[in-house]
Design a protein around this nucleic acid. Structure first.
Lengths: 350, 350
DNA sequence: GATTTTAACGAAAACGTTTTCGATTTGTGA
DNA sequence: TCACAAATCGAAAACGTTTTCGTTAAAATC
């Protein structure tokens, strides 16, 4: 019933614990014979090293912590999948925690992970996080930390992101290229950097193309559980406020799909009357009608990349090498589908 | 830089490590003065007990393992959320692994978790799992194990499930009650118990109501990444094969939404021509048009309940009490929406 | 004042592993 | 034969806690 220990193996074979340990780890100063002996007995007894003891000795747990604002979200679920898969490859386990977009919780969870002495931490910030002492604390303790997606520029650690501003610019530029003159934007909440950057990308594309920026064309939504409904509501409001809008760039697909639904119901033709571009390439976007043009946000790859970077830093940390924070920007692509009309401007289609 | 230890505190205060340890844990044989002294210094030094050492001493890690077939799935994501939230409340951390519906991976992961010496394991089976030695091994080692949702009846451990058969029966019975005479079923894959049970519930409702069971009305789909497409395809086939079907019970919402989409495109009126009931109550079901009648499958509650049961068993195991496996069946409810027509049979509506 | 009780503390073992360093044995070359 | 190197092993310390049990001093009891 009790787990097998090195001591038990040693006693059975009449050798020392030391030799057993070395044999199992293929130390050069153990003869082939004893190695074989030890390994065989270990196998038949189904010996498993006591991780607790190993951790204590080696001062590492082969475990990392992951704090994520929401789990039930296709993008983050994909990130989790990417992290877990990559971690497993490298022999690391992942402890997962959900901050629920709350700074207080996030802080507590950082504390939990530090107490647990994980080898490193991956985090995507809660919307509520405007202070970062808890993260600086992690860094000061010399614990590897990598942020992804929802980051704080001010925190001095590695980050894996997409260029939200550029992607939004691309999306808006595409709307302009296909002939849209009056382009609205459904933006995300005011706080997280992502929705700010997407908004800025939208704005810059307008001005770069000589189009006026009109604040009344920008609608805000929380992008929480009610995203779909928010999309519908904003679409409704937009139709009431303006009759000349011919394109919308929307912060996230679910909102876009809500808007699309409202337009469909009201008989507004997409893309003939209004062209729509979403963000994130949720699988439903390729499936609804009309299919949604959107920016592909590589969740799985982001998770994978974030872990890879963290892994490097963990290794460096073990060797007492200092780590130079690195910012990795993943490519996004515009996925053109039915919700945007074809360009009428042939010159642009050379 | 190096973490503070009990020893350091002891030396600073000129007392023994023992007393420091006891003071921090409020042992009665330490004076109030020393307790205050110790606690204060511990706080200012930001002392955190070394989990590795604590684990080694106490033989528990306050950590559980979770193996799940897919993370990127609204139901499972909800389950994860429920588990993580409840675990955190009780001071437990969750290590998450994804089996990818593969028996081989699942086996390896069980092994990993056993090596890690987690205090207990939560698992939802991979579709590919038809052998259960790896799970029996866990049980034999006396490690608490709770299965949820995708379970194996044959394994002697606690389980948290819904009554798939009953829920399917309810769904089908509802279709019958509102007047459907020719009811089709889009079922899931042949293996997992869930889709078998849902199929059986469908069948039993038919025969209990004197309706013939017609195998040609049963369509199979894998319910994987292509669910939506499968729904469309099956809908198409159904329209080709039969012109008299007036109701469909569908294994899962995403497939149902695919079917709905196809029917919409082909001008088939839902619910006038065909009534549809889905399964799981995905949030999109309340949002598409027409909204989908479905069985609500309580993912968050399932996660929460599964952890609670595991927690009980972990506590029992610590006290060397034997654990009697318990099967907890969560209630499901039929959520009536637009995709099913109102009953014309007033007698049934008393 | 002698004895017992209580309060407060500490020594030491234990958890199971890893690793350093020294000891022993065997083999090698002169 | 001697010196030295190589091969093989083990003793012991260390990781940082927890907990048992004993010790001491002070307080209480008679």
């Amino acid at each position: 019933m009790k787990p097998i220990t090195l001591k038990q193996i040693a006693e059975q074979l009449n050798i020392s614990v030391t030799t057993v340990s070395k044999a199992l780890k293929d130390y050069p100063d153990v003869s082939k014979k004893t190695k074989a002996m030890v390994k065989e007995l270990a196998k038949t007894l189904n010996y498993r090293p006591n991780t607790f003891a190993v951790n204590l000795r080696t001062k590492e747990s082969k475990t990392i912590g992951l704090i994520i604002p929401v789990i039930v979200h296709h993008f983050f679920a994909n990130v989790i999948k990417g992290i877990v898969a990559q971690a497993e490859k490298k022999g690391y386990l992942v402890i997962i925690l959900q901050s629920n977009e709350s700074y207080e919780l996030e802080k507590k969870q950082i504390d939990l992970l530090m107490s647990q002495r994980v080898d490193g931490i991956l985090i995507s910030l809660a919307n509520g996080s405007a202070r970062f002492d808890h993260l600086n604390e992690v860094i000061n303790q010399g614990k590897p930390l990598v942020m992804f997606d929802k980051i704080a520029k001010i925190v001095n650690c590695s980050k894996v992101i997409i260029d939200d501003r550029k992607a939004a610019y691309t999306a808006t530029q595409y709307l302009i290229d296909i002939g849209c003159k009056r382009i609205a934007h459904f933006r995300g909440p005011l706080l997280p950097q992502n929705s700010i950057d997407r908004f800025l990308g939208y704005k810059k594309a307008l001005t770069d193309n000589g189009l006026p920026y009109d604040p009344s064309l920008v609608y805000i939504c929380e992008c929480g559980d009610m995203s779909f409904e928010e999309g519908k509501m904003n679409a409704k409001k937009l139709l009431e406020d303006h009759d000349d809008v011919d394109g919308i760039f929307i912060n996230t697909d679910l909102v876009a799909i809500g808007a699309l639904n409202e337009f469909n119901n009201q008989g507004i033709k997409i893309p003939e009357d209004i062209s729509i571009v979403g963000f994130s390439n949720w699988f439903m976007s390729s499936v609804i009608s009309p299919t949604l043009t959107t920016i592909d946000q590589p969740g799985y790859l982001m998770g994978k990349t974030a872990f890879k970077q963290l892994f490097k830093e963990i290794k460096a940390h073990k060797k007492n090498k200092s780590i130079i924070p690195k910012i990795i920007t993943l490519e996004t692509v515009l996925v053109k589908r039915e919700s945007t009309k074809k360009s009428t401007n042939t010159i642009l289609e050379i």
